[in-house]
């Protein structure tokens, strides 16, 4: 905190914990984690499946309650006690989920997704032409043509197009924080670059904080300013991406990085941990 005086923390956590179940079936999904995500930064949370990264993201989104600890939004304790306050909070934080195919309600045309965003921003009573103009702008931001998409159902789009439309949604909402939960893992490599580029562009354009949740350490290294490595509900290492990935200090981080196939260096298959 002291080192980064010039950057304002946008979302912070102090001892954030999530425990599922009670008694004998108690499982600690997230175990007393502290973090500061600064404004305009791209922060990656890297962990294997079961590390608790998705649980943490749901807590930060306010979809599930925090068992213990505190989440601070712009330095103030987050208050989402009532529905109205939740609605207010959700104007500032929005997600992109992993699976674009399950992110849409397949019974409604995709226009309704974008119109919802406009309603949320208080543009409900604008004339329809103006709404179309705004939606067209959002679509062109993600290289889609609104005229081609309007009146279509989600299943008529490809996975890449759906995920881009999710970004268009974020562009319309302009939240302070974007929670991107593995946004490229279901997308082909060729379309992945497009999505990543758009996220970067979005950050530059509206100074958004992007929380990027992934299991792909290479992807985290490529896109983020700061990296948090998560193991069994705890952050084992964090810091600027260059430091953490290139010179990992923690044993778990080192193992994680050594286990990912390399291209430029030799990938040493003998350092396998026999588990």
């Amino acid at each position: 905190m002291a080192m980064e005086n010039e950057k304002k923390p946008c979302l912070s956590g102090r001892g954030v914990t999530k425990i599922f179940g009670a008694g004998k079936q108690e499982t600690v999904a997230v175990d007393h984690v502290d973090f500061d995500f600064n404004e305009g930064e791209i922060v990656s949370i890297v962990g294997e499946s079961g590390s608790g990264k998705t649980t943490l993201s749901k807590m930060l989104l306010g979809l599930i309650s925090v068992t213990e600890g505190q989440v601070l939004y712009q330095g103030q304790p987050r208050d989402i006690g009532t529905n109205a306050k939740k609605k207010e909070y959700w104007k500032n934080i929005q997600p992109i989920f992993q699976d674009p195919f399950s992110s849409y309600n397949i019974f409604y045309k995709i226009d309704s997704v974008l119109l919802d965003c406009l309603n949320m921003r208080g543009c409900k009573n604008l004339p329809y032409e103006q709404k179309v103009e705004m939606m067209t702008e959002a679509c062109s931001f993600v290289n889609l043509k609104f005229a081609e998409l309007t009146n279509k159902y989600p299943f008529e789009l490809s996975g890449g197009q759906m995920q881009r439309l999710m970004i268009a949604r974020i562009f319309l909402l302009k939240p302070k924080i974007l929670m991107a939960d593995e946004p490229t893992s279901m997308i082909d490599a060729c379309s992945r670059a497009t999505i990543l580029d758009m996220l970067l562009k979005l950050r530059d354009e509206i100074n958004m904080t992007v929380i990027f949740i992934t299991h792909d350490i290479g992807l985290a290294y490529y896109i983020s300013d700061k990296v948090y490595i998560m193991e069994h509900g705890r952050f084992v290492e964090s810091g600027p991406a260059e430091d953490v990935i290139i010179n990992p200090k923690d044993a778990y981080t080192r193992r994680l990085i050594s286990d990912v196939p390399k291209i430029y260096e030799k990938w040493d298959l003998d350092t396998v941990l026999n588990k």
């Binding site: 490599a189 985290a220 990935i245 196939p261």
Partner: peptide, 19 residues
């Protein structure tokens, strides 16, 4: 051109996208 690996130098490279 769309390969991403956690190795130094990768961050500076521009990824290829095929529309």
């Amino acid at each position: 051109g769309s390969i991403i690996v956690p190795e130094s130098g990768v961050r500076e490279r521009k990824l290829t996208a095929i529309p």
